Computed example of a mutant assay.
Amino acid sequence: MPNDPQRRTTEGLRRLIMFSDAVVAIAMTLLVLPVADVAGKLQVQRTFLQAVGEHRNELMGFIVSFTVIWVLWRNHHQIMENYRNYNSTMFNVHFAWLLSIVVLPLATALISNDQVPWADAFYLVVLAVAIGSLITIARQGARHRDLLVDDDDVRAGLAGWSGVGTLLALVVALVITLVWPSVGSLPLLLLLIPGPVNALVTRVRGG
Rank of each mutant, 00 (worst) to 15 (best):
I193K: 06
W73R: 04
F91A: 01
Y123P: 10
D120Q: 11
D151L: 08
W161R: 10
G160M: 11
N85P: 06
I63E: 11
L72G: 05
L59E: 04
L148P: 02
G165V: 01
V179K: 04
S133H: 01
S185W: 13
A173N: 06
H77W: 13
T177H: 02
N57Y: 14
L134S: 02
F66M: 02
D146W: 10
D146M: 10
V171K: 09
P187H: 04
N87K: 07
V172A: 10
F95A: 10
V64Q: 12
E58D: 13
L192S: 13
H77P: 09
V183L: 06
S100F: 01
D150E: 13
N82S: 15
A130W: 01
A107I: 09
V175E: 05
F66D: 00
A107G: 15
S100T: 04
G160W: 12
L148C: 04
S112I: 07
A138H: 02
W180A: 09
L167T: 06
A142F: 09
G160T: 12
L104Q: 12
E58S: 15
A130C: 02
V149R: 07
F122V: 13
N57L: 15
I101S: 00
L127G: 12
L189Q: 08
A109P: 08
R143I: 03
L106V: 15
A128D: 10
H76W: 03
W161P: 05
V149E: 06
Y86K: 11
V116C: 07
V171A: 15
A159M: 13
P194Y: 05
S182A: 10
V164I: 14
V183T: 09
D114P: 10
V154D: 01
V164P: 08
A130D: 01
A142G: 13
G141M: 00
A173Q: 06
V126P: 01
L186S: 14
D151I: 05
W97F: 10
L124I: 14
P194E: 02
T108V: 12
I137R: 00
L168G: 14
T89Y: 08
V175A: 05
L192P: 03
L170M: 12
L134T: 01
N75P: 05
Q140N: 01
L147A: 04
H76C: 03
D150P: 06
D153F: 07
W161G: 06
Q115C: 13
L127N: 12
M60Y: 15
H94W: 00
G157C: 07
W70S: 14
G160H: 15
